[in-house]
Simulated scan of single mutants.
Amino acid sequence: MKDDAAFAVRPRQRRRRPGKRAGQYVGVPFVLPSLVILMVVVIIPIVMSLYFSMTQYSVLGSPTWVGTDNYTKLLNDDAFAAALGNTVVYTLISVPLQTVIALLLADVLARRFRNRFGAVVRSTLFIPVMSSLVVVGVVWRTILGTNDGAVNVFLEAFGLERVNFLGDPTLAIWVVGLVTVWKNIGYFLVIYYAGMMDVPAELYEASGLDGAGRFGQLWHVTIPSLRPVTLLVVILGTIWSFQVFDLVYVMTGGGPGGATTTIVMMIFRAGFQNFQMGYASAMAAVLFALILIIAVVQRKVLKSNED
């Protein structure tokens, strides 16, 4: 009996499979390095900036807690209001122009020049994108100079008066905005061009059979199909415009008479020239909030139009 019991078939034991919770943490080691970098480079500086915005801090001493005094001062600062107005005007000049021009150029290249010529044009227009903003500012400041600038020399050769492009308070903000458009067109052109490659050719063929011309196809086929791309282009352009500093600093220095002073330039002056780090942090917090609100509103508006 004992021998029979020894050779009896034992029930098969089931292997324990790892539960769902165990599988959820498999990717943590892969994400952790990027998360640490994000914490150190982005999240911690933002939190510290919010803290400093409620202190009086000059770098040379310890920060002193002042609560919302910096924000109260900011609401009554006419210079900050003027800088905010300049930034908004600069954004309204650059973002619509670079969006429309990049879309039109991409449509022409995608519909007519899918060849080496189109590739050369795209590469040429992308050169300013790869150039430093400081270099771009120096080059255009030289070209538009009042005394020996190439544009004014050309105008004088035809008997026209010289134009003070960077010294006129009305023209200066427009000039800086147009230079920004010139620099960014190549980047947004490539984005639009890539988006147009995904638009089905059947849509253009069907619209052509319905009698739609080139403009009709652009308006009824291309633009609706590229709404997600346009959302990206507009949001990126707006964020970059609100963060502009180096181009304005090199071309006009914020002048003439503060006509081109932007919010980031105000932050630079307060923090690194006047050593008012608390006040500069308050302006940076307001700028962050403005960019976030504008990006959310733009997304909502463009998404609602898409629906």
Rank of each mutant, 00 (worst) to 15 (best):
Ala102Ile: 01
Ser207Met: 08
Pro128Lys: 08
Val179Ala: 03
Asp210Tyr: 07
Pro169Ala: 07
Ala201Val: 15
Leu103Ile: 10
Thr146Trp: 02
Phe126Tyr: 15
Val139Ala: 05
Pro169Phe: 09
Pro169Lys: 06
Ser132Leu: 04
Ala172Ser: 15
Leu218Arg: 04
Phe117Trp: 10
Leu209Asp: 03
Pro200Trp: 07
Ile191Ser: 02
Pro200Gly: 10
Phe154Tyr: 04
Glu202Gln: 13
Leu109Val: 05
Trp182Lys: 06
Val163Glu: 07
Ile173Trp: 14
Asn152Ile: 09
Val120Trp: 05
Tyr192Val: 00
Phe154Glu: 01
Leu103Lys: 10
Ile185Phe: 00
Val120Thr: 14
Tyr192Arg: 01
Val179Trp: 03
Asn147Glu: 13
Ala110Lys: 06
Val95Pro: 03
Ala119Leu: 11
Leu166Ile: 00
Gly186Lys: 07
Leu109Met: 03
Val179Gln: 06
Pro169Thr: 04
Tyr204Cys: 05
Pro169Gln: 04
Gly137Asn: 03
Leu155Gln: 02
Arg214Gly: 13
Val181His: 08
Met130Lys: 04
Ala206Asp: 00
Phe113Asn: 09
Leu144Thr: 03
Glu205Thr: 09
Ile127Met: 12
Arg214Ile: 14
Arg111Glu: 13
Ser132His: 02
Pro169Asp: 08
Leu97Trp: 12
Arg114Thr: 13
Asp168Asn: 15
Leu133Lys: 01
Glu161Asn: 14
Gly137Ile: 11
Arg122Gly: 06
Gly216Val: 06
Phe117Val: 14
Tyr192His: 09
Ala212Glu: 10
